[in-house]
Each structure stands twice: as C-alpha cells, then as structure tokens.
Design a protein around this nucleic acid. Structure first.
Lengths: 137, 137
DNA sequence: TGATCCAATGATACGGGGTCGCAATGCGAC
DNA sequence: GTCGCATTGCGACCCCGTATCATTGGATCA
C-alpha cells in the first residue's frame, strides 16, 4: 500500500475532486498492475469514463504508467519511482517490476546518436519469468 | 520495393493462396509502416479478416513486425532483417528504422540476470525525430 | 483428369478497450 | 450568494482485432 502524491495534481492546476480521490485511493490499495475494467469494478459509483480520464491524467503526471504486455494488451501500474524506468514483466504471475539502468539508457542514446536521431522518449520491456515463479531464493 | 520471402510460407506448411499472394504483393509495394486498415483499402477484393489473418501469420514467421507507437497504437512493417531488432520511430514523418545492437541486448540481459529474471523476450522502441526531418546531411 | 479432403476465405457478428458529446453538477473565486 | 468553468456521468460511438460458420479452392492421390 503505497501513498500517491496527490499534491502533484493540484500543483498542476487540476482539481482534487471526490471521484479523483476515490480512484487514487483505489490505486493505493492495489499493488499489482491493473486494467481499467478491474479498477472500475472496485468503484461502482464512479463513471467508467471518469476512471479512464483520471488514469489518463495520472499517466500524464507520471503517477501511473502504462505496461504493454507481450500480446499488445495494456495494463496500468502506479509508478513507484515517478521517474523514467523500464519493466520486468512476468508472464506467469503477471507481476511487474520497475528498474532503471544508466547503462541501458546509455546504449539507447548511443544508437540514436549514431543514426542522427533526436531522441525524445523510449520504452523497454522485458518479458519472462520472475524469480518467485522460478522458485529461486 | 523489397522482395518478400514467400518460400518461408510453404516451407512451414501453409498454402500460398491467391489472397495471401495479394497481401504479400501489396506489402512489397509499400516501404512504410502501415495499419491493417490502410492495407485493406488497397485490397478491396480481399476480406478484412483475411488481411488480419495473413498479417498475423506473416508476423509469426517474422516477415512483418509490429511497431508500437508512443500513444499505444500499432502499425506493422515488413521486417528487413527477419531477425530480432529494435526501432527508431520518427514522430514527425512516421518513418521506422530497424537497428540491432549487441550492447543494448547485453544491457537488457544484464538487468534480467541481476533480478534473477528468466528472460524470454524483450522490446525496445526509440521515439523522436529522424535525421531527415531534422534536415541533417 | 477427376474426386476428395481439409486449409483457407469472406461475411458478419461480436468483444475489449477507449473516446466523444452533452447536459447536469459542483468547486473555487469574487 | 452566484458565476464560470472544470469535471462528471451516461450513453453512444469508434477502432482494432477475433470468433463463427457456411462456402471455396488447392494439393494430393487414384
């Protein structure tokens, strides 16, 4: 159960309304990647469109992040670092672990630079099985 | 106008039928990433479902690859290398350039290994502006 | 050459995920 | 208080892709 930086909403001129607070509370109660549908089920009093809009907003503020699965489906997750990062996505239990690595970012920048490409974003997702599912210590 | 290795279809036990040939011919005529809809418009006599099925098939055979855009939409592209690679995706002209880089793959494997994660796939997409759009030599 | 059989096709309905339009609501500033 | 505008809820809608299923047609073998 992590805490969500609601201040960031108000700082950027958005209102912290009751429905938004309800979505944020629901997020704080989950520690696993979720779909909008799952989230929406937990919030029967909140309109589906509002859940979508709120998640979109939180995504723009880097409070939640999109997690693209291998098959193209999307889940969302509350970003723990709030900074740019990558994901280790377990295909067995569905867990998602954030990581960041300067060497990886460096390799990405190097490739862009070699191609005279002006980089303004990137994504990197790793798919496989997590340590827990492999029953490693 | 690149040539498509149609042999790979028959080698794997699939029939090289007229509709499939039509899709493949259309691909050979495009050198830009495309959506199924765009492709389907060029093939008014081919059923939409067949275009989807054929692209899915070609994707499994690594003849075309999925290109996930920054906003989550998907385009497809005929894979030039036929091997695993990453993409430089220009947000201005929409061009997609393949590249592969052992250093990048190495960094990815390193991170998986550190997390005791058993890697069985990964993706890396770079978003920005290509050299042409930047008007570089 | 024809008969046979199964993969492939096309039409269409369906489903998941997300957005739009719009009237109603409710913050926050004055 | 009240005014204005951001936000909400509802429902219709859209996009992309898949499932269903009757029909077609290609490869194989006699």
């Amino acid at each position: 159960m992590s805490s969500i930086p609601t201040g960031r909403l108000e700082d950027t001129g958005y209102r912290l309304t009751a429905p938004r607070r309800a979505v944020i509370d629901a997020l704080a109660r989950t520690d696993r990647p979720f779909t909008i549908e799952e989230l929406s089920e937990q919030l029967p009093n909140i309109g589906r469109a509002t859940v979508f809009r709120t998640i979109k907003l939180l995504h723009e503020l880097d409070i939640v992040c999109r997690v693209p699965l291998e098959d193209g489906r999307i889940r969302y997750e509350t970003s723990h670092s709030g900074r740019h990062h990558h994901h280790l996505i377990c295909g067995e239990c569905g867990s998602v672990t954030e990581f960041s690595d300067p060497a990886l970012d460096e390799a990405i920048e190097q490739n862009a630079s070699t191609a005279s490409f002006e980089l303004d974003g990137h994504s990197a997702e790793l798919y496989g099985r997590c340590a827990t599912c492999r029953r490693l210590p």
